[in-house]
Structure formats: C-alpha cells, structure tokens
Computed example of a mutant assay.
Amino acid sequence: MLKLIFLEMRKHRFARNFGYAAIANVGILLFLIMIGVVDWGAEDYAFITYPSSFMLIDTFARVTFIIFGGALISKLIISEYSNKTMNVMFTYPIKRHKIIAAKLIIVFAFTFFMIMFTDLLMGAILLTTDHFYPFITDELTGKQALQLLIKYTISSLSAAAMALIPLLFGMRKHSVTATMVSSIFLVLAVCSGVNGPSVSINSIIVIPLTLGAIGLWIASLSLVRLETKDVN
C-alpha cells in the first residue's frame, strides 16, 4: 500500500501541493494579523485569551484545508473518472479498492498534517509575538498547552475525515464542480461562528466527530461500490 501511495504522489507531482499549502499559510497569517490589528481594543478581542486565539487559528486552518482536501479529491479521483483514466488504472493487476484507498489515504493524511502543522506554526508565531509584545491577558500553563494540543489533534483528525464528505457529491455525476461546492458549503456550515470568534459549531465536539465518522463511512462506501455502480 505504501508503494502504491508513493506512486500516486509521484504521478500527480504531489510535492507541488506543499508549495500551495505554504502560500495558503502565508494567507492565513496575513488574515490573522489583519484581525489582530483591526480588532485591537474591542471588548470581544479575538486574541484576548489563549483558548480563543487558538480556536481562531484552528478555524482558519480547517476552512483552508478542508477546501484543499476537496480540491485533492477532485484531482486524484473525480477528474480521473470524468477523463476515463480511472478505467485504465483498473486494468492494472492491482485490486480496485486499493487504488482508491491509496488516494483517500493521501487526502486524509495531507489534510490532517497540514491542519496540525498550521495550528502549531501559527501558535508558535502567536506565542513569540506575545512574548515580545504582550497582548494576551492570560498565561499559557503547561497543563493548558497539553489540553489544547490534545483538543486540536482530535479536531484535526475529525476535519481530515470530514474532508472526505464531498466525495459523495462528486461521485454522483463525477463532477469536480459538485465536489468543490460541497467542500465550501461544508466549511460554511461547520466553521461558522455562533457567538463571536470564541464559539463555533465545531466547538460542539459531537458535531465534528459525527461528521468525521460520516466522512469515513462515505470513503468506505466508495470502496464497496467500486465493484458495481461506479465502474459500470
């Protein structure tokens, strides 16, 4: 399976996606700086505490890379169905479900890694900035840091699984547009704020976990359907 994953990554020149992800991280950083400057002095200042600061960072990371995951599904799976290149791949002496599984593992792993990396990178920048120019009112204890790390590791895993949900809509008519639109609607629904930057739908832990489970179910369903409807 690992060899198949590396072959898929090489075929699609996957290394370029890390460059695009770096550009996305620069964009996220600029947005965070803009929010920090424009919102300065407000009663509900986004960066007033560490929990609210990290929630804002994680929200931007999830929005960006769930949509990025949808783009990867479109490129690695949906476009190959619509271009009929998937039929050629299915003639290889490799089980069909392994081919799709390798692609889905790539999407899941990349989405999880980039959300975690972005959370850690932006968190490190936040801590460094606050050290030299204090603006956060509370202190980050070791216990609190560990709790936040566990929380956002779980959040990243659920978001990576959630990023597989657009596969259901894209596979209906092998539509790249449907895949991307469903990704956008997904992040609008899940990452929308309920009461300012400190509370979002994603903070209700049962919702992202349920959607993550649905994403994994959709991925497993697509593997089952390979032998029937999707191939015919």
Rank of each mutant, 00 (worst) to 15 (best):
M1F: 04
L2T: 12
L2N: 13
K3W: 06
E8F: 11
M9Q: 08
K11M: 15
A15W: 14
A21C: 10
I23G: 14
V26M: 13
G27D: 10
I28Q: 07
L29C: 11
G36Q: 11
W40F: 15
W40D: 13
W40M: 14
S53N: 02
F54W: 02
M55P: 00
L56N: 07
F60A: 10
I66T: 04
I73Y: 00
S79V: 02
E80F: 01
N83E: 08
K84C: 04
K84I: 03
T85V: 00
T85W: 03
V88A: 12
Y92S: 12
K95M: 07
R96S: 04
H97E: 08
L104R: 01
T111Q: 12
M116H: 11
A124N: 05
I125A: 11
D138R: 04
L140I: 07
A145H: 02
Q147V: 12
T153W: 09
I154R: 08
A161G: 09
A163D: 03
L164C: 09
P166N: 12
K173Y: 04
T177V: 12
A178P: 04
A178I: 07
S183D: 09
V194G: 05
G196P: 00
N202W: 02
S203A: 06
L209G: 07
T210S: 05
G212M: 05
A213F: 08
W217C: 02
S220R: 06
